[in-house]
Amino acid sequence: MHSEASEVGVAVEGESHAWVEWFAGQWQGFDPTNNIEIGDRHVLVGRERDYNDIPPLRGVYAGSFDAKLNVAVTITRQA
């Protein structure tokens, strides 16, 4: 999500990626993509041991080898 604060009820374009969390007396997280600690800008969708436990997509693709995938993430602040 962009760094500026969004207004309640207004949809904004977001970004989807993973970050790392570890337990060192308490849970800590770091987002290496944006070089920041985990905060209010991060929305947890799922948590597991590794990628194989919770991949974003799973299945079989049947189609052209040169197909393109486009994804848009829209986030609306509720409070």
Rank of each mutant, 00 (worst) to 15 (best):
M1G: 09
H2C: 07
H2P: 05
H2N: 13
S3F: 07
S3R: 09
E4T: 11
A5F: 08
A5S: 12
A5C: 04
S6Q: 14
E7D: 14
V8A: 08
G9D: 11
V10W: 03
A11V: 07
E13R: 06
G14K: 03
G14C: 04
E15Q: 10
S16L: 14
S16M: 08
H17R: 01
A18G: 03
A18K: 04
A18T: 12
W19K: 00
V20S: 10
W22N: 00
W22F: 08
A24C: 09
G25E: 07
G25A: 05
G25Y: 06
W27S: 01
G29F: 02
G29M: 01
D31I: 05
P32Q: 05
P32D: 04
P32L: 07
T33G: 03
T33F: 04
N34H: 06
N34K: 06
N34F: 02
N35F: 10
I36D: 01
E37N: 15
D40Q: 11
D40I: 04
R41F: 12
R41P: 04
H42R: 00
H42I: 01
H42Y: 03
V43T: 11
V43Y: 10
V43E: 08
V43A: 13
L44P: 02
L44W: 03
V45T: 10
V45G: 06
R47A: 14
E48K: 09
R49Q: 13
D50V: 05
D50S: 12
D50L: 06
Y51I: 12
N52D: 15
N52M: 14
D53L: 04
D53S: 10
I54G: 08
I54E: 13
I54R: 07
P56L: 12
P56R: 07
P56K: 04
R58M: 10
R58D: 14
G59H: 02
G59P: 01
V60S: 15
Y61M: 03
A62R: 09
A62K: 04
A62N: 07
A62F: 07
D66E: 12
D66Q: 12
K68M: 09
K68D: 09
N70T: 14
N70F: 11
N70Y: 13
V71K: 05
A72L: 12
A72C: 07
V73I: 15
T74P: 00
T74F: 10
I75N: 00
T76G: 02
R77V: 05
Q78L: 12
Q78K: 07
A79L: 14
A79W: 09
A79C: 05
A79K: 12
